[in-house]
Design a protein around this nucleic acid. Structure first.
Length: 724
DNA sequence: ATATAGAATCTTTTT
DNA sequence: GATTCTATAT
């Protein structure tokens, strides 16, 4: 058989990785080095050359997008569907195991999945049941604690009383939370992984079955795996099936949420027979950009080591822009994008990257002002919208009456006269009797535990859910969804409560939910063994939150955090807000190890650019209500000077030892000849008043609040002001 | 059940 | 500064 198509068009290291013998392997794939390509071709090689059945391959990714892209490209390469192969996210695959073996996993058949929002509500409830003040122990922190323990594989019953009050309270909350989850038949994200790990670990037959089945395990973005995920992989491989790990330690940017960079750093110690292959040839960026990235990342101490190179052009120098303030920064970038478009470029080839979401505001308002279409990534996702979650909660109750988070969500949504008092009676009874809220409400109805008015209202709710379940049982999925939405009267509720404008939006989304149900392809026997299409759809909604705003079609400039830019590439990239305290972030300055992660984040950001890269910082920035003065980020200085072209030099003179954001302006010369409060005249802008002055000599400038035009920074050398 | 005022919070995010 | 939650009054 001719299998040359699998190896053709690959470079030497790529080919070595793809055709490697069946041993554990670590592929260190630099940014833009064809990482997905290697994974796809490796799988094709296993099937075509090693004659491995697709059935015995397990391929794991972090996002649904990456998983479906991988499957698509494999099928495209092989020209045939590879149905039996398990390709998915850690959570998706863990979910599949739990659905298949729900009895062995000790879960109810129709268990539901909690997203982090649902989880937080349930943590709050657990805390309330323990009478713990949520001022002293913020539920967010408890949620974080619980997830961190689960990611380490630690159950509360195995946790030692440490004598530390705080810690002990956390254990109590964790215990109570687990109890509530069990009662409600719900499972959070980390639980999917932990529970499936325990399922395989503690069940010899299943363990043997899956360890024999999966003869090859491939992992993408290995540097982002946490302890639990790594243990999960090792368990499934059974120490026999080779693990093919692909990743880049220099792109590990999720340590703060539990990712263990040590997993990739110590891989060859865990698997001494493992072969390491480096993919260092880059097919994305200019040589200048790569040199900058390489130089920057060498400042990190703990690295496996890697040097990106290209056969491509040297490219333009990296531009550096010192903005007066955040508005100036936004205006400069807006101007650059306008110019780009005038030269025939597309806006969507341009990305504006920032460290924190709050920075997008200025860009948004500037772009609106100048009429530049843009798209901000990382907004609210479709399945996370309030109205969608309301509708889903009704649906979840029809599937599983004991789903307490859903019960709480819609018991009085839309308002049906069941107030806080009635709900807390139900809650109290439920926790006293160890029942779900649904069962507690029913028993209270029987025992006349409510006032007559409340009883009628609760009765109405119970009947509503029963009717939804009964009437919709035999309908196709989308009609079922439509029926439940209609009966819930959510549409009328939103219209009345939020008025035409916003209410319409929500109704549109509810309609889209019906379309989503219609489009949802239900494949029994895969992820959804033993499941009806409704439960399958509900799991899908929880595991795949959906894209943000889908304003596809229009040519938009892209705005996003550096984190969410990972994996993407653009012709032109702006890395903004490069000030000490913002990037690297203030909180990373003091904590050990965090600075290296910030630097890796910068490395990720730089390597997103194909042709043009611009770095910018603001000497003065308005943030959270106060003015901050941050020195230029050290990351700028870590890039060799000869790669950088200064578009505009800074005006302020910085104390070179200043290392953090300060609220007082840096020492600077002022020989502008004007004083604050003085009235001046400008030929175009008219009369105004001096608000601030800074700089000296040819770069001296003043901020003037013009009577008609608002405030502007002007360079004195060009402005031609006259005193009044 | 809603309206309003005051308080709290503000790094990064996928599943 | 802006938004979002929470407590209190009506």
């Amino acid at each position: 058989m001719d299998v040359s198509y699998i190896l053709d068009e690959l470079n030497k290291p790529q080919r070595d990785a793809v055709s490697m013998p069946s041993h554990p392997a670590l592929v260190l794939a630099g940014a833009g080095s064809g990482k997905t390509r290697v994974l796809v071709h490796r799988i094709a090689w296993l099937i075509e050359v090693e004659q491995l059945a697709p059935f015995s391959i397990l391929a794991v990714t972090f996002t649904n997008k990456a998983a479906s892209e991988m499957r698509g490209r494999i099928e495209n390469l092989l020209g045939t569907p590879v149905g039996g192969m398990w390709v998915g996210t850690f959570h998706g695959l863990a979910h599949r195991l739990l659905r298949r073996h729900w009895q062995e996993a000790k879960l109810p058949q129709h268990f539901q999945i909690l997203d982090s929002d649902d989880q937080l509500r349930l943590v709050k409830r657990a805390q309330r049941s323990l009478n713990l003040d949520d001022k002293l122990w913020p539920p967010k922190q408890a949620q974080w604690f619980i997830n961190a323990r689960k990611d380490e594989g630690v159950r509360p019953q195995y946790m030692q009383d440490s004598g530390d009050i705080n810690y002990n309270q956390m254990i109590r909350i964790y215990t109570a939370y687990e109890q509530l989850c069990k009662q409600s038949g719900v499972v959070d994200f980390a639980e999917l992984l932990l529970r499936s790990l325990e399922l395989i670990r503690d069940n010899p037959e299943l363990q043997q079955h899956y360890q024999q089945r999966f003869r090859h395990i491939l992992v993408d973005e290995f540097q982002d795996t946490n302890e639990l995920q790594y243990a999960w992989l090792q368990l499934l491989s059974g120490g026999k099936s080779p693990v093919f790990a692909v990743g880049d330690d220099d792109q590990s940017i999720y340590g703060w949420r539990g990712a263990k960079i040590e997993n990739i750093q110590n891989f060859t110690q865990d698997y001494p027979q493992a072969q390491t292959i480096r993919l260092e040839q880059n097919y994305r960026s200019t040589n200048t950009i790569l040199k900058a990235a390489n130089a920057l990342i060498t400042h990190n101490e703990h690295r496996l080591g890697k040097n990106l190179w290209t056969e491509g052009a040297e490219g333009e120098p990296i531009k550096l822009f010192a903005a007066y303030n955040e508005v100036d920064e936004a205006q400069y970038i807006a101007g650059q994008i306008q110019a780009w478009v005038e030269q025939g470029g597309k806006r969507e080839e341009t990305a504006i990257l920032y460290r924190s979401n709050a920075q997008s505001r200025v860009f948004e308002s500037t772009f609106i002002e100048q009429g530049i279409p843009y798209r901000v990534y990382g907004g609210q996702r479709f399945f996370e919208r309030a109205e969608i979650k309301d509708a889903l909660a009704y649906l979840r109750l029809t599937a599983n009456r004991d789903d307490d988070p859903s019960f709480e969500r819609v018991i009085n949504q839309p308002t049906r006269g069941i107030g806080d008092k009635t709900v807390s009676i139900i809650r109290e009874y439920a926790s006293l009797q160890g029942l779900s809220l649904w069962l507690a409400a029913q028993q209270l109805l029987q025992q006349k535990g409510f006032t007559p008015r409340a009883a009628a209202a609760v009765q109405g709710f119970v009947q509503l859910i029963e009717q939804m379940a009964k009437q919709s049982a035999r309908q196709p999925l989308h009609e079922q969804v439509e029926y439940v939405i209609d009966l819930s009267h959510l549409k009328e509720h939103f219209l009345k409560k939020e008025g035409e404008e916003k209410g319409r939006d929500r109704i549109e989304n509810l309609k889209e939910l019906i379309s989503a149900a219609q489009a949802f392809e239900y494949k029994p026997d895969e992820d959804h063994a033993n499941l009806d299409s409704l439960s399958a759809f509900l799991s899908h909604a929880a595991l795949e939150a959906g894209e943000g705003q889908g304003d596809a079609g229009e040519d938009c400039a892209q705005m996003m955090t550096m984190h969410s830019a990972k994996g993407l590439e653009f012709q032109q990239v702006f890395i903004t807000g490069m000030e000490i305290g913002l990037f690297p972030h203030q909180n990373a300055l003091s904590e050990a190890g965090r600075m290296e992660e910030e630097r890796r984040l910068c490395y990720v950001a730089i390597t997103r650019a194909r042709q043009l890269l611009t770095l910018s910082y603001a000497e003065q920035r308005q943030l959270y209500g106060n003015t901050l003065y941050g020195a230029p980020s050290q990351f700028i200085h870590e890039i060799p000077d000869d790669l950088i072209e200064e578009i505009r030099p800074p005006v302020a003179t910085w104390d070179t030892h200043s290392s953090a954001l300060s609220t007082s302006p840096p020492t600077r010369h002022n020989d502008s000849g004007y004083r604050v409060g003085q009235r001046v005249y400008h030929a175009t802008f008219g009369d105004g008043i001096i608000l601030d002055t800074e700089g000296s000599g040819s770069s001296a400038r003043v901020q003037v609040n013009f009577d008609d035009e608002g405030s502007k920074w002007l360079v004195l050398a060009y402005a031609n002001l006259s005193a009044l």
